[in-house]
Write a protein that binds this DNA or RNA. Structure first.
Length: 215
DNA sequence: ATCCCGAGGG
DNA sequence: CCCTCTGGAT
């Protein structure tokens, strides 16, 4: 396992490659950003950004989406994976925001997670992006990158990963670290063919060295 | 543990 | 063709 200092160093090196990594989901309001994050589950944000302008134009507020026909929403988001479940979540989520939160996206993790289709990862992303609340959302990229680098135990689940990273990294860089690991996972440490040979982190990466050794 | 699930990349 | 994409609910 990497020490706290080594973890911080790794995050800093990622920052040199991706100096201003930020969310690539496009949304004009907190409500629309929440919808985009729900839709991004097991789906590239690029795919979400293609359909979201029309969806957001059609349903500008929670009040409008709460009255929507689920079938109509399905048609609008049919190009992304898991679209049937997501369409139901989006409408149910809008309805609950109207009924329980006066039409305003709540800020606490507990309240966010009470919304249909919103789990810990989605709640963390919204807290960080919309409200500036420090959090480390653990998704497929963060899981893969932190495990390959041995920042966390190989058998850690997403909650354990989040807790370990929060303990090892200063709160002031949690949000930046999240986005840097996302970009690292997308463009350097990809799931299938990571670019280990040219990786700036190779010297401190157990998995990278193992892969290079192996060929 | 299992289901959902289209599009893009290798 | 097969794998992966900022997961969550049952």
């Amino acid at each position: 396992m990497l020490s706290d200092e080594e973890c911080l160093k790794a995050i800093e090196i990622m920052g040199e490659s991706f100096p201003n990594a930020h969310s690539s989901l496009v949304a004009d309001t907190d409500f629309h950003f929440l919808l985009a994050v729900i839709m991004s589950a097991q789906t590239t944000d690029k795919a979400v950004n293609i359909l979201s302008p029309k969806l957001f134009e059609t349903y500008k507020t929670p009040y409008e989406l709460a009255e929507a026909n689920v079938a109509d929403v399905m048609t609008l988001i049919k190009t992304i994976g898991l679209y049937r479940n997501k369409a139901k979540y989006l409408v149910a989520c809008a309805q609950k925001i109207v009924s329980d939160f006066h039409g305003v996206v709540p800020q606490s993790r507990k309240e966010l997670m009470s919304l249909p289709g919103v789990g810990r990862k989605t709640a963390d992303v919204v807290m960080a992006e919309c409200f500036g609340i420090p959090a480390i959302a653990v998704d497929t990229h963060v899981t893969r990158v932190s495990k390959r680098l041995r920042m966390v135990a190989q058998d850690a689940d997403v909650l354990k990963i989040e807790q370990t990273l929060m303990k090892k990294l200063p709160k002031s860089i949690w949000i930046a670290a999240h986005f840097r690991m996302i970009y690292w996972g997308r463009y350097q440490c990809m799931a299938r063919s990571p670019k280990c040979e040219s990786c700036p982190l190779l010297k401190m990466c157990a998995e990278g060295k193992r892969r290079v050794e192996k060929g």
